[in-house]
Amino acid sequence: MSTILPVIQPGAQACTDIDFDEKLAAYGMELRASRVDTLQINVGKLCNQVCKHCHVDAGPSRPEIMTRETVEQVLDAIRNFRISTVDITGGAPELNPSFRYLASQSRSLGCQVIVRHNLTVMFQPGQDDLPQFFRNHTIEVVSSLPYFLEQQTDAQRGRGVFEKSIAALRRLNAVGYGVENSELILNLVYNPVGAFLPPPQQSIEADFKRELMNRYGISFNRLFTITNMPIRRFLDYLRRSGNEERYMRKLIEAFNPGTLDGLMCRNLVSVDWTGKLYDCDFNQMLDLPVAPELPQTIAEFSPEKFAGRRITTGSHCFGCTAGVGSSCGGAVATE
């Protein structure tokens, strides 16, 4: 567990080139999947925003986008193997022309569908009815809002993003998302605006609920705290700002073996825009595919082969195991 007073760490001087698997081995552990209940589909890197911490390096000029043919392969896998949860991400996944087809078909197949929705995309041409689309298909919405103040949010996600995000949240509330006694779930994501670890999820969630309601009349269900991963754009920031070694040391020192059971890679498989398979979205962006003995594409996927598999790891895995841990669903261990 990390200390709140990092000046004094007995036996500190942590080396920043520690191998993640060796660290686990020191605890007599290894990282293996349990069973696959979630397919996380990255439908492309196209995005209307250019966030400074984005591990995907997504933006308006990225051409990578999942084709309808690959979407059909994903749907075949969902249908054939009764996948319970489909988690759709990007980029801004809504900018993929097949997004609504994938989401609605997945719902028709009985899946819980989660969309990683950046809020501002609903103000892009042709996206105005997104709140109604989400509502009509009872899609769970997870949206990044790094802070309840404009300065921090715009510093991470771009100028003007906070104002649009607040307008978007009001629209989601208006159709029934994140409001009391509604089945429409609206969860928010907190990412640190810089090279530090997230605060305890419960306490920052209480702050967000109080401040967003008092300042803007906005409500939501839960706040997930997610650690910034030293990958792509955030890694570039760490290097440019001279924070890489210090941040990696912080992650390694905060390693918590109690997070292992709750890591998202243990029960999901990540699919990229071409249909290739990975253990998580972070491995996808690092081009670290699933273990070579496994099927490599969604067309060959079967959950039996992936249950109990060895997870491909790297130093970035320390990001998910630091402190109370981090996953697409927020913290994975208790304080």
Binding site: L5, P6, V7, P192, F196, P198, P199
Partner: peptide
């Protein structure tokens, strides 16, 4: 040392 460390601690405890 303390200013550096507690600035980080405050951020990681959720202060702005």
């Amino acid at each position: 040392y303390c200013i550096d460390a507690f600035s980080q601690s405050c951020l990681e405890a959720g202060s702005n």
